[in-house]
Amino acid sequence: MADKINAAAVNEDELFTFVSNDDLESEKIIAPRYSYWKSVFRVFFRKKTNWFVLGLLALLLLSCFLVPVFCKYDPYENVTNAYMYNKSPVEAMRLTGGFSLKWCLGSGQLGNSIFYGIWTSARTSLLLAMICAAINMTVGIILGAVWGYSKAMDRVMLVVYSIIANVPYILLISVLVYIIGSGFWSFVFALTITGWLGISYFFRTQVLIIRDREYSLASRCLGTPIPRIISKNILPFLTSVIVTLLATELPSYISMEVFLSFIGIGLSATVPSLGRMIQEGQVAFRTYPWAFWPPVAIAALLTIILYVLGQSLADATDPRTHM
């Protein structure tokens, strides 16, 4: 003990040295450089469940886009072969001679393969959701940003919005589908003709909130043109809002398609879709459950995964979680 104290006393002069007072040195920031997107992914991948859900989504996406490429789905291949109608997985495989992926989920009303059916249908639903979300989000965000910024446009658009928003969405879509037919692209048209309006309105409110913040006033004082104010001062602040919106929009189009096809005003019978399969399966789902539950499961899984991933990503894009 005494030795230690002595040692310290001896070395006292060497323990402390004066630091020179340097103004520039005090300005230095020691913290590592901040990068927005790096932090987003760091927060996102910190959660183990996100890895799992992302893997599941990758598996689903791969199946949706690869299975139909390698295995052509033909809903009418066994239409003349009544033995194949409504067969359970075990029976279907026995009839076709041994185990095969194609019949591992049984066959449908017209002897179609359920396994091939669900992936081809899921691809249709996913494509529909992606295309509709892309169109509605792009149009909605751009128009919403201008709408929030321009007072003249605000007056006009509010009237347009109040009129169109009061027409029931389902009614509008069913009337449109009756008029222009029920193909894939006419369905996209029906979903996007007014679909952007709600997004646009939501965005207008967001833009209004941050439009008159002080840094935007500062940009005006510097003579920044409005397009650059929108792209540099407003949209970067809305990244997390955009991702949140996408997280709810994408699955909502899948459910919308399923719902509309289920009540009979969706895609036509020639386009395989999840809603269509569920509608066909529900007729006798107590007797032939294998034709009903697989498409329901895929639809539910897709919606839930997209929603969960979207929400996690939305949380990660919020810079308040980056600490």
């Binding site: 927005y36 002080e214 840094y215 006033l217 940009s219 540099k232």
Partner: peptide, 22 residues
């Protein structure tokens, strides 16, 4: 354009007047 360039403003709250995402 001329006036915008020649007359500049310094704002009260330095936290609010700088664009946080730039």
């Amino acid at each position: 354009r001329d006036v915008v360039r020649k007359i500049q403003m310094i704002f009260q709250d330095p936290a609010a007047s700088l664009n946080e995402r730039a």
